[in-house]
């Protein structure tokens, strides 16, 4: 499988809130079947089965047939990869916001010392 279509699939799989909820439940329970998951979701069993198949296709869950049901569990390594795609954007903004905070606070402090200095004839350094 080439890496870019692999990424596309993972990206798409994680974009759906129902599938994210299913992964959440699978992580919480360790494993589950479409039937047990239906009890906890406002979606039909048929829809859940479809979502699970898609998750299996992109490697986010493993399914093992047990009698008439398939027992699913999360593949943790793959999930870590996928949640990384979601959260990295947030982490980047966290870092940027921290820098913005630093810059704005420095500029503000400089502005204040500038106005405090203005009577004293001191020539202040500008930062902005």
């Amino acid at each position: 499988m080439n890496p870019s279509s692999d990424d596309d699939d993972l990206w798409e799989a994680m974009a759906d809130p129902t599938r994210r909820k299913l992964l959440d439940l699978l992580v919480a329970h360790g494993h589950a079947t479409a039937t047990t998951l239906t009890a906890e979701m406002p979606v039909s069993r048929q829809a859940i089965s479809k979502h699970l198949l898609l998750l299996q296709r992109v490697g986010l869950v493993d399914g093992q047939r047990q009698g008439r049901e398939v027992r699913y569990e999360v593949r943790e390594q793959r999930l870590a990869e996928a949640t990384g795609a979601l959260s990295e954007v947030a982490n980047r903004w966290d870092r940027r916001l921290r820098t913005i905070k630093q810059l704005a606070e420095q500029a503000h402090a400089a502005d204040r010392s500038k106005s405090a200095d203005s009577g004293g004839g001191h020539s202040p350094r500008t930062t902005l």
Binding site: S4, D7, W11, L23, D24, V27, A28, E76, L79, A80, E81, T83, G84, A85, L86, S87, E88, V89, N91, R92
Partner: peptide, 21 residues
Amino acid sequence: FLEQHRHGWQVQGDRLRDLFA
């Protein structure tokens, strides 16, 4: 786009999983 993100995934991987699960 994904490559740009991946650099961060490796660093943040564990924390991300905490967030999600």
